Computed example of a mutant assay.
Amino acid sequence: MFSPEGPRLRELAVQALSSVEHGYDLLAPKFDHTPFRTPDSVLDATTEALRSSGPFDAGLDLCCGTGAGIDVLRQVCRGSVTGVDFSTGMLTVARERARPQGPAVGWVRADARALPFGPVFDLVVSFGAFGHFLPRELPGLFTQVHSVLRPGGRFVFPVVAPPRPGSLTYGMLLGFDAVMRVRNAVRRPPFVMYYRAVRFGDMGRELTRTGLRVELRALPEFGRRRDGSPRVRLVVATRPGAGRSAAGPVDA
């Protein structure tokens, strides 16, 4: 799960007892050596899917962390690229590790629930951030995304099919969420990081209620489950209006 360069158990304990912001400030130098970082395979598959419907102009990586999604945007955007996160530590590491090739990158420290932008982006991506938002926060979060998209702009993010009940992965995620709930019941400020709190169906409904047109695209690199459903999908939520049409075939 963790490479030798990753955080030790004591470091993880200190981070988990902090606020989300401070915890990720502490984790930032070693974040890329943890399983919390989106795998390169998912980033690469997302890049290829976006290439088939690009290029785009201005791109935003929502909750950019150490900048893994920035590399995706720089390959599919011909204009400006921006990373936004509320962790100063994450943004510092992202700046240090940014590659020199491609469009210039702007880094902004801000809360995703109060984005300091107008409708200036053609593409917004996000990787692995939704576990830091409670279900009741989704409407406000998606309203913010809608507000920064130009007409025809897209909000794109990958989703992995949930593990089957009874599987080892299912048990591990269930146990992790239970530990976090106990921690947040006895200590403040809370550390919001839940793997099972935000459900895919809820996200789709809230995106639609926000006014975005939601379509799904299977990422064929990851194959299908026994029931025939894709293991990994790309959610493409488009703000209606003039501009590009939604990307790719729909695979629900």
Rank of each mutant, 00 (worst) to 15 (best):
G140T: 07
S52K: 14
E21Q: 15
A237S: 13
V192N: 01
H132P: 09
L134N: 01
V232D: 00
H146N: 13
R78W: 03
R226A: 15
A237I: 13
Q101H: 10
T210V: 12
G228P: 08
H146I: 07
E21Y: 13
D202T: 09
V156K: 01
G67M: 02
R244W: 09
P7E: 01
E215W: 03
F117P: 04
M193F: 11
P119W: 07
A237M: 12
Q101I: 09
P230I: 02
D44F: 15
V20S: 12
G6S: 06
L207E: 02
L12Y: 00
G228L: 09
H132Y: 10
G106M: 09
F133A: 07
F36T: 04
R205Y: 08
G152P: 08
R164W: 05
G248N: 07
G59W: 00
A98C: 08
P158A: 13
V81S: 03
R188H: 07
G118P: 04
G153V: 09
A104P: 01
P158H: 11
A185R: 13
T66L: 08
V105C: 03
L207M: 11
L43N: 04
A45Y: 12
A129Y: 09
V81C: 06
R37D: 06
R74D: 01
V198L: 14
F155D: 01
G166E: 01
P39W: 12
G83W: 00
V42G: 03
R199W: 02
L219R: 09
G54W: 05
R217H: 14
D227T: 06
M172K: 02
G65R: 01
V81K: 10
R213D: 15
V124T: 08
F191A: 11
M90S: 05
L216A: 11
R187S: 12
G89E: 00
R199G: 09
F127L: 13
D202S: 10
G128Q: 06
A110E: 11
S41M: 12
S229I: 00
E5K: 14
K30N: 04
S18R: 12
Q144K: 10
A242Q: 12
P189W: 03
T47R: 15
L73D: 00
L138W: 03
T143R: 14
Q75F: 05
V120K: 06
V179Y: 13
M193W: 02
P7S: 11
L62Q: 10
S167Q: 04
V148F: 07
A114L: 12
L27C: 05
T210K: 11
E206L: 11
G118K: 04
F36A: 12
S52Q: 13
R113E: 09
E21W: 13
E48Q: 15
V148S: 09
L138G: 03
L168I: 05
T46L: 04
S167T: 06
A129Q: 06
V250M: 08
E5S: 14
L138R: 13
S80P: 04
V145N: 10
R97T: 10
P100Y: 06
